[in-house]
Simulated scan of single mutants.
Amino acid sequence: MPARLVWALGLSQLLCWGVSYYLIGLFGVAMAADLGHGLPAIHGGFTVALIVMGLVSSRVGRGIDRRGGRPVMVAGSVLMAAGCLGLALAQELVAYYAAWIVLGLAMRMTLYDAAFAALARIGGRAARTPISQITLLGGLASTVMWPVGQGLADAVGWRGALCAYAVLALATVPLHRQIPADRHVEAAPAPSGRPSPTPAPSAPPSRLAPVLYALIVALTGMLNSGMSAHMIGLLGGLGMAPALAVWVSTLRGVGQSAARLAEIQFGKRLSAFGLAILATALVVPGFPLPVAFGATPAAGIAFALLFGAGNGLVTIVRGALPLVLFDPAHYGQTVGRLITPGFFASALAPLLYALVIERFGDAAALWLSFLLAIGALAAALVLALRFRAESAGVLRKNHA
C-alpha cells in the first residue's frame, strides 16, 4: 500500500471527522441560541444524520465494491461541503434538519467505514495495517479541529466557521482522488505437489459470525455515542468539579491515540480476534471505578484512559475483523449491511442514557455501560472460539 495514499486518507479522515461528526459538540449551544430552539432539537439534527448513515450504509458499501473508493469518497466530500453550507445558511429548523440529512449521507461516504472499504478493495486481507494507520490521524480530529473551529467562531461566528468548514471539506477532494481504481486479486493456489504459501484466513461457514460482528459494532457504538454525549455530565453528576470533569474527559483522546499507536507498533503479533477481545476487555473495568470510588481524580482518569484505549482499538477491530471473516472482494457491501444496526443504536444511545440518568441516576448509566461492555466482550470471545473451532475443522477435512 503506497505510503502517500495512507497519509492522504489519514489527513482526509482528520478533516472529514472534524468538520462533520464533531461540529455539533462545538457549535451546538451557539446554534440553539441563534436559531431559537432548545438543545434537544439542535442535537436531533445529528441523530437524524446517524439514522441516514444507517439507511444508506449498504448501498454506499456496495458502490465502493463496484466502482472503487475514489468516486464515492470524492462525491462525499462535495456533499459534506454542501451540508456545512446548508447549516451555515439555515434560518429555520426544516432547513437545519435538511442540511443534517445531507451531512448524514456525506459522512457515510467519507468517514472510516468508507475508507476501510476502499482500502480492502485495494489491498485485500493485507489492508489491516493501513486501516490502523489512518485511524491514528483520524483520531486527532477533535483535538485539532475543535480549537480551529473555536478560533473561527470567535472571529466570524458559527455560520462563518461552517463556511470555512465547507472549504476544508472540498480540500479533501484531491486527497480522495489519490485512491486508485485497482482491485486486489487473491493469489492463485500453488500447483499440487509444490509447497503452498501460508493460506489467507478463510471465512467461517457459520451464520453466527456476521451476527456476532454486528453485535460487537452495535454495542460498542452505543457506548461511544452515549459516552460522547454524557461522559462529562456523568462525572459531574457523581461529584466531580465541572472544570475537572471536562479535563478528565479529554484524556479519553489520549488513551485512544496511545492504544492505536501501540497497535501499529506491536499489533502484528495479535490476530484480529485477539485484538477484538483486548479492545472490548479494556473498557469493562473502567465503568465501575467512578461508582466504587466516587468521582475522585484517580478513578476518573483511569476510567477515561481505559475507555479511550478500548474505544480506539474498537475502531480498528471494526475494519480488521471483516478482512478475516468475509471475502474482501465484497467487503463494502457485507460490512455496509452489518453495521447498519450499529448506526441506529448509536443514534438512540444518547436518548437512552438521558432517560436512565433522569430516572435512575448517573451511577445507573455507568452500570448500563458496564453491561453493554460485557456483552461486547462476550460476543468477541464467542466469535474467536467459534472461528478457531471451525478453522480446525476445515484443516482436519483438508488433511483427511
Rank of each mutant, 00 (worst) to 15 (best):
L79A: 13
V283P: 09
R177Q: 15
A347P: 06
R207I: 07
A364N: 05
G236Q: 09
S77Q: 05
Q265H: 02
I134S: 04
G300I: 02
R128Q: 10
L111H: 06
Y353G: 04
A389W: 15
L352W: 09
A188K: 12
V102L: 13
L55I: 08
L377Q: 08
L35A: 12
G308L: 03
G76A: 06
A118M: 04
G294V: 07
F387L: 10
R66A: 13
E390P: 08
H37K: 01
I131V: 11
V291T: 13
A164N: 12
A365S: 12
A380Y: 09
G221Y: 03
G123N: 15
G38V: 01
Y112G: 01
T143M: 12
V217S: 00
A95C: 14
A354M: 04
Y165F: 15
G253N: 06
A400E: 15
I101R: 10
L103K: 11
I301L: 08
E186K: 11
A389R: 15
I122G: 14
S369C: 09
Y21R: 01
W146R: 01
L355N: 03
M231Q: 12
L87T: 15
G253M: 05
A166S: 15
M53K: 03
Q178Y: 12
L305H: 07
R260C: 02
A166M: 10
T110H: 09
M109E: 01
A384Q: 14
A118K: 04
M1H: 14
L289S: 01
A378M: 11
V48M: 09
G68Q: 12
G61S: 02
G28W: 06
S196D: 14
M109S: 07
L313H: 05
K397Y: 15
A276F: 05
S12W: 05
G28K: 06
G44W: 01
V167Y: 13
R62L: 04
V356F: 09
V211D: 10
A8N: 08
P290A: 01
R4Y: 03
L87A: 13
L305M: 08
D113F: 01
D34V: 00
P199I: 13
M53P: 08
W367E: 05
C163A: 14
Q13N: 03
M145H: 10
S369H: 02
E263R: 00
G300H: 03
K268P: 01
L325D: 12
N398Y: 09
L282C: 00
I134N: 05
T172A: 13
A245R: 09
L366I: 03
A389I: 14
G342H: 02
G25N: 11
G274R: 11
G267W: 00
L270S: 07
L137P: 07
G160F: 10
Y22V: 02
R67T: 03
E358I: 00
L244R: 07
Y96L: 04
A187K: 13
L366D: 06
V144L: 09
R177D: 15
G274H: 12
T250K: 03
L212W: 03
A155C: 09
A281D: 06
H176D: 11
H37A: 07
L175K: 12
I374P: 02
A380N: 08
L152N: 02
A262Y: 05
L338H: 07
A304V: 04
